[in-house]
């Protein structure tokens, strides 16, 4: 039996999650010994539809061409793993879904909008194909990615971390920025994985790892209003990096008016 094979695919994204591999240093070379990297354009390997054991997908699905590509990726991969906020929840660019702004924004930016072939919605990969495992984060954490590779190669389902950032703050002995400084922290509803970075830097979490399990967004929304946030501010908090994730989308839309207006 040959080495297990992997592929890394890019869709609508910033390339930052692929860096989990390209920034891994020696571990990248070690990984290349353990697995056969069949497709990874930025690393210089291209065989887009080679059959692989694990396909990592970065980016959301936002063009007609990407719709076709993602179906083919599914067809030639044993496991499909999404890599980060765009692939898992649509990413920042899914903000165009809020008011159906695709056409308007295209015309505002491009002199010849007819050349731009975007879909009206930017959506997570799971809106179009079956996904076996999702890695959250904007960006994903490199350790999580390499751990997931190892676990999948051993035939074990990767352990999903659904704890809240608050739990991580306690483990790290970080003082609570909401309690001590009145900051509108999203830690109580956000999944950990970052290591409670923002609170440790004295700032409020902005939910780049997406919703935690059993996120009580209604209670947090009331607390945010109690801290003096306007309804539009509350909407801005939830409708950000992971705006298309269902629990954040629902919580944000309760306070949202077109263009984040307060009127």
């Amino acid at each position: 039996m040959g080495k297990p094979s992997i592929a890394v695919h890019k869709f609508s994204s910033c390339d930052g999650c692929q860096l989990a591999f390209l920034n891994a240093g020696e571990e990248l070379l070690n990984l290349a010994e353990l697995v056969d990297i069949k497709h990874f354009l930025e690393a210089g390997v291209a065989d887009e539809y080679a059959h692989v054991d694990i396909a990592f997908v970065e980016g959301s699905i936002s063009t007609t061409d990407e719709l076709t590509r993602i179906q083919r990726v599914r067809a030639c991969s044993r496991y499909v793993v999404t890599l980060g906020a765009c692939a898992t929840a649509g990413g920042l660019q899914a903000l165009r879904n809020l008011d159906g702004s695709n056409t308007e924004w295209k015309h505002a930016i491009y002199a010849h909008p007819g050349f731009i072939h975007t879909l009206d919605q930017a959506e997570p990969v799971s809106a179009h194909i079956k996904v076996d495992f999702e890695l959250w984060g904007c960006p994903v954490n490199g350790r999580q990615v390499l751990a997931a590779v190892q676990q999948l190669l051993f035939g074990v389902a990767p352990l999903e971390q659904r704890d809240k950032v608050c739990m991580e703050c306690k483990r790290q002995h970080a003082s609570c920025v909401m309690v001590t400084a009145g900051r509108p922290c999203l830690g109580p509803v956000t999944r950990t994985g970052c290591g409670a970075l923002c609170p440790r830097f004295g700032r409020d979490c902005y939910a780049c790892f997406g919703p935690a399990g059993n996120a009580n967004t209604a209670a947090l929304s009331r607390r945010l209003e109690g801290l003096g946030l306007t309804p539009a501010d509350v909407a801005r908090r939830f409708l950000f990096i992971n705006n298309h994730a269902p629990s954040f989308n629902e919580a944000g839309k309760k306070h949202y008016r077109q263009g984040f207006s307060d009127d």
């Binding site: 936002s62 063009t63 702004s101 695709n102 924004w105 295209k106 731009i116 780049c208 801005r236 990096i241």
Partner: peptide, 22 residues
């Protein structure tokens, strides 16, 4: 053919302190 993501448009309506993370 990198798909456009329209950053300049969804920055509109955001507060100044959200711009760097965007």
């Amino acid at each position: 053919f990198e798909p456009p993501r329209y950053f300049e448009k969804f920055l509109e309506g955001r507060r100044h302190h959200e711009v760097l993370d965007t």
